[in-house]
Design a protein around this nucleic acid. Structure first.
Lengths: 242, 242
DNA sequence: TTGAAAAATATTGTCTACAATTGTGGCACG
DNA sequence: CGTGCCACAATTGTAGACAATATTTTTCAA
């Protein structure tokens, strides 16, 4: 219901396509990515190359490139000679990821407040409006996407593609963590916090904006909990209750 | 004299090696990397796969993986269907890289000051000592490496592998820029600045440490100049003066 | 019946061959 | 003499074959 990402059509990308595709725009990448985010693929799941090949009708070269990229984005883990599995972020990793995110976003807010134009703020408000609307429609998937989009928009306003790319990576990893360890959805009404941050940025209260952003991210992190079916699974195996 | 990285020996890595090598530890990667840093390979130089293959006696698979990794590290640029060339950082890119570096290192200094132990500081002082010694021996290559190493050490002290990785990438790109656009060597006596930063960190003056770090990086950036043979080259071609 | 060792199977890493695209040189034409 | 087009050569992208490693199953002995 959430998305019709069940691409089992005879997608080949076979002979005839020569242009080197950016590999993270491949349908294969997107399908795996979405499946992980929607928890159809849970952490630890093995991803054998051959199965992916015939599932997508692609050759191993492509599948392999896609897995490489997914590994670089920390969506899957690539163990030498042992294949790929869906990444399993540990609590310690999670802590580090959020710490890095706080540091990055603080720096980005500072730069964004320095570099953003009136037009930029107008677009940011549009973004906030869409977010607000999705929330009121109870459109959870769209909302989650838009909530992340706000942070990415702010990052774009900083006009530093390098830091922006880093934040994209980190936000992607955060999304994975939230999807896996907080499956009921990120429930807090983030909208007001986002709006406050934008307000402070536009009115020049940079220090306050940074403070709010850090607070907002701490809030998000505090809602993560690791008591999950992941444990249930390994427990089940360990006790042989099957 | 600077380094004997001329590995033209019949290195094969042929059949028999099965374990997937991290690809940035390959002799091919290191050779290209070093050549770029030593300016034996100048920006814009084409790197045809076949030539690299027979130069290193390796197959295209490996060469291709190495080029992929080099592209990820922004050492080479990978143009679809048109091959790889040595990266050519533009002035704007350079500005962004240094801006990102200032932001990252500021955050890292803050975290490092919070997390470093007495042992950590002892090792950092050892690092500073080595650096100082290399400087007095006029050992330029070692000195440059050690100067970068100081920044990486501080990053390690923050105990956040994610931010640390990001800084490693950025420092690598900075080294490329310095090597290309400041070939006479980074001459400023950086040692004292490094020492001051370390002092402030250890004595708890975090704000001052961050300030010094940013100042230090601005200093480094200010020594970059783009009036270089790179321009000379393109100018020469454009005027047909050959 | 349980444990370990060995064969069989499945899966990954690497290499080579082929297809397609890009760049270049020559030729015709204006 | 300059410009545009077409064929050829050089180079990259992809696919599948082969080799080596990991995993599973089978077998044999205690």
């Amino acid at each position: 219901m959430t998305s019709a990402a069940e691409d089992t059509k005879p997608f080949t990308l076979g002979p005839g396509i020569r242009r080197a595709m950016p590999a993270d725009e491949t349908p294969i990448y997107k399908a795996i990515f979405d499946s992980v985010m929607n928890q159809r693929l849970t952490p630890g799941t093995k991803l054998p190359e051959n199965e992916l090949c015939e599932a997508f009708g692609a050759s191993r070269s492509l599948v392999r490139r896609v897995l490489q990229k997914l590994a670089h984005d920390h969506i899957v883990e690539l163990r030498p000679n042992r294949g790929a599995i869906v990444a399993t972020p540990s609590p310690e990793e999670t802590r580090q990821i959020f710490e890095a995110r706080r540091a990055l976003e603080a720096a980005l807010v500072k730069l964004a407040a320095r570099n953003a134009t009136a037009d930029d703020y107008a677009r940011l408000r549009q973004q906030l409006h869409d977010e607000h609307e999705a929330m009121h429609r109870f459109d959870q998937p769209s909302w989650a996407r838009l909530a992340s989009a706000f942070h990415l928009k702010v990052a774009a306003l900083a006009k530093n593609p390098i830091l922006e790319t880093y934040l994209q990576e980190i936000v992607s990893r955060c999304s994975l963590i939230v999807a896996v360890y907080q499956p009921w959805g990120n429930a807090s009404c983030e909208h007001d916090e986002h709006a406050s941050i934008a307000n402070c940025m536009e009115s020049g209260e940079v220090g306050r904006a940074i403070e709010l952003m850090e607070q907002h991210l701490l809030e998000l992190e505090s809602h993560i909990s690791f008591n999950r079916d992941n444990d249930k699974l390994s427990l089940k195996d360990k006790l042989g209750l099957k």
